[in-house]
């Protein structure tokens, strides 16, 4: 009796099939060869000791929304569920943003807010300053437009990279103006 899980790591989908036969567990990732897995977590829910074909590793798993965050040997993976309707994070920061929305380049504390709804903004204009671990990061307008909403005030904590900071109506621009950008 196999259970199949579908996960996303860094935008790549993976399938993980778990087969149980009595006490024995076999795991197949994508189309790799199946491997024998022995796992225990000794009472601390997230802390897994895993033997893969007898080779030990330690993973710490915590839940994040419908997915997980897994730390293995110093690297932290965001493992989203590819089936469970998890919120997929959009691109973050700068010109890759969805027009009309500005998201946080990192979590931190908002120490300056330079705009209010109704303000017109130019490309590159400072919108906010977010400070984390004593480093200040200026959030700039990716496009010109008019501010429609500012979701944080001075002193507020921004929990994570990608959180929505500011919404705006992008200005109508002549597309041919500067097709190459810079």
């Amino acid at each position: 009796m196999a259970t199949r899980h579908r996960f996303l790591i860094d935008g790549h989908e993976h399938s993980v099939a778990v087969e149980r036969d009595g006490g024995a567990v076999t795991v197949q990732i994508d189309d790799e060869d199946p491997v024998a897995v022995d796992a225990t977590n000794s009472g601390l829910p997230g802390l897994f000791s895993v033997l893969v074909d007898g080779e030990p590793s330690t993973a710490y798993v915590s839940r994040r929304g419908a997915g997980f965050e897994v730390t293995v040997a110093g690297r932290r993976f965001t493992v989203d569920s590819a089936t469970g309707g998890s919120k997929r994070r959009g691109p973050v920061g700068g010109l890759e943003e969805t027009p009309g929305k500005v998201t946080a380049p990192l979590g931190g504390v908002v120490i300056e807010v330079h705009v209010a709804p109704g303000d017109t903004i130019e490309v590159g204009q400072p919108l906010m300053v977010i400070e984390a671990m004593k480093m200040q990061n200026e959030v700039q307008a990716p496009l010109a437009g008019t501010i429609t909403a500012v979701h944080y005030s001075k002193g507020d904590r921004v929990d994570a990279k990608g959180d929505l900071l500011v919404e705006y109506d992008p200005a109508e621009t002549a597309d041919e103006d500067d097709p190459a950008g810079d």
Binding site: F7, V16, G46, F48, V52, R63, G67, F68, V70
Partner: peptide, 19 residues
């Protein structure tokens, strides 16, 4: 480490969902 993370995530998913 990515393989190990996927295996751990699958086992955790079963733990949580009761599969």
């Amino acid at each position: 480490r990515e393989r190990e993370a996927l295996i751990a995530a699958a086992l955790a998913a079963e733990l949580v969902r009761g599969n």
